[in-house]
Design a protein around this nucleic acid. Structure first.
Length: 464
RNA sequence: UCCCCGAUAGCUCAAUGGUAGAGCAAUCGGCUGUUAACCGGUUUGUUGUAGGUUCGAGUCCUACUCGGGGAGCCA
């Protein structure tokens, strides 16, 4: 007999087949007329398979009638058309084997809905809920689409290091990686900690970005992208930040900022289109239970072109908006979350790409414009999540880059290899970084980023 | 890190400073091709931790821990 998934068993084409189903019981409903209904889920899809268990089963009284949420089972039987509403098919069970019980007195997952706060403390069991099953299937689809999109366009998947000795990437606080004894570290004659005796012979950290390394490979192989874990030791406590998250960073030689924007827009549209097509049932669930507007938002993305405007124009729009913002708007000041949200949620009501920010509020490696005041930076803003992509055309001119580093007070020496890219065969190039969890958050409508990653790492929390 | 709010039964929540309750879950019974099933009975507590005020604290005060919302940093 064939073992098939719940997804396949729910398909009317399976009617008439004798099959085996393996999964977990979601709920049981008894009928005193002499049978019980079991709802079985195996993660293959959002819906459950209803199984009909009749009293003539040899273990009906001893086992079947004691099954409850969380129990694992195998069932044999025939797929039939369901006579009642609610499901296209059902399994008429001829044999039920119980693999593992779940004591209802202690099993934390109940048939009723739980708050996300409660489920975070049960992160090992929350994948058994409807919401997390749906989130993880969509997350998987997005990861698949990321690779498909880039592979189809001839990008090379590049694995940049997770441990880095550059303590100067300038992208936030870093986690230290060390094998020194924290109780009594080796000391220099002057009394400072002697990092030369650490594992790598110098201070080492977990990466905050693979961009600089990505640029080196783009400067030889043309089109590359990274997709890997990223770490930020910032004390951020928001629904949009994690200490450990996954980031996608394409880097393309001979691309300017316009090419970069085209790539970012096509990339996001592809992800949205794939999810709408291939995760329709899960998206129905999100639209019904999580965020009623999520489907409309995604349709807008896949159909309309992103609004592109300069930072300078954005500031003018904000100043003329008549809105009262908590933080001031002015040329040279960084835009606050409330400003970005106004632009993308109210003014344009679609994704917005802001470009050409003042160089004083952006990183040293971004390409300087002719005006000497702005750089070729871009931020892609989407409704509800805010900044989802940050990128730029990179400064490929050695003299300009060195001057910028001096302005930013950065030492040249640790960047010797990065500067070599400009000394030897330099090319215009551009790239961006996309927070994977923020995309999952945006696509599913989930309110908190901690609920779109299997095991969130945040300040004060690394359980599981 | 800052501001605000919160922590009471397994879960979600209620309780003028005066005997700690409901719904759901669990359990027992009834009913039904049921479907967040329904109806009736039963069980469930160191009120986050440590102090303090008071005749008396779930309730007021202080500190701490944890959580949520907002902000900053960013992806």
């Amino acid at each position: 007999m064939n073992w098939i998934s719940v997804k396949e068993a729910r398909n009317p084409e399976s009617i008439g087949k004798s099959v085996i189903i393996k999964g977990w019981v979601r709920t049981r409903r008894d009928s005193k007329a002499g049978f019980s209904f079991l709802e079985i889920n195996d993660g293959s899809c959002q819906g459950n398979l209803q199984a009909l268990a009749e009293a003539c089963l040899p273990n009906y009284k001893e086992e079947v009638q004691k099954l409850g949420a969380g129990c694992s089972v195998s069932l044999e039987g025939e797929i039939r058309q369901s006579p009642a509403k609610g499901q296209p098919t059902e399994l008429a069970a001829s044999k039920i084997v119980v693999h593992g019980w779940a004591d209802p007195l202690t099993y934390p997952m109940q048939k009723k809905g739980h708050t996300f706060e409660f489920l975070r403390a049960q992160a090992h069991l929350r994948p058994r809920t409807n919401t997390f099953g749906a989130v993880m299937r969509v997350r998987n689809q997005i990861a698949h689409s990321v690779h498909s999109f880039f592979q189809e366009q001839g990008f090379l998947y590049l694995n940049t290091p997770i441990i880095t000795a550059s303590d100067c990437e300038g992208a936030g606080q870093m986690f230290r990686v060390s094998t020194l004894d924290p109780e009594k570290p080796p000391r220099t004659p002057e009394g400072a900690i002697d990092h030369s005796r650490d594992f790598f012979g110098k201070q080492a950290f977990l990466t905050v970005s693979g961009q600089l390394e990505g640029e080196t490979y783009a400067s030889a192989l043309g089109k590359v992208y990274t997709f890997g874990p990223t770490f930020r030791a910032e004390n951020s406590n928001t629904a949009r930040h994690l200490a450990e998250f996954w980031m996608i960073e394409p880097e393309v030689a001979f691309h300017n900022l316009e090419d970069n924007m085209d790539l970012a827009e096509a990339f996001l549209k592809r992800i949205v289109k794939d999810v709408l097509e291939k995760c329709a049932e899960d998206m129905d669930f999100f639209a019904e239970r999580i965020d009623k507007t999520v489907r409309a938002t995604l349709e807008v993305i896949s159909q309309s072109s992103f609004e592109r405007l300069s930072y300078t124009d954005a500031v003018a729009i904000l100043q003329k908006s008549g809105q009262s913002f908590e933080y001031p708007v002015g040329w040279g000041l960084d835009l606050q979350s409330e400003h970005e949200r106004y632009l993308t949620e109210k003014h344009f009501q679609k994704p917005v790409i802001l470009t050409d920010y003042p160089k004083t509020i952006k990183a040293f490696y971004m390409r300087q414009n002719e005006d000497g005041k702005t750089v070729r930076a871009m931020d892609v803003l989407v409704p509800r999540v805010g900044e989802i992509i940050g990128g730029s055309q990179r400064e490929e001119r050695l003299d300009v880059l060195l001057e910028r580093m001096r302005e930013c007070g950065l030492p040249e020496e640790p960047y010797w290899w990065y500067l070599d890219l400009r000394r030897y065969g330099t090319v215009p190039h551009a790239g961006f970084g996309l927070g994977f969890e923020r995309v999952v958050q945006f696509v599913t409508g989930m309110a908190n980023i901690r609920d779109v990653i299997p095991f969130p790492r945040i300040p004060g929390w690394a359980e599981f």
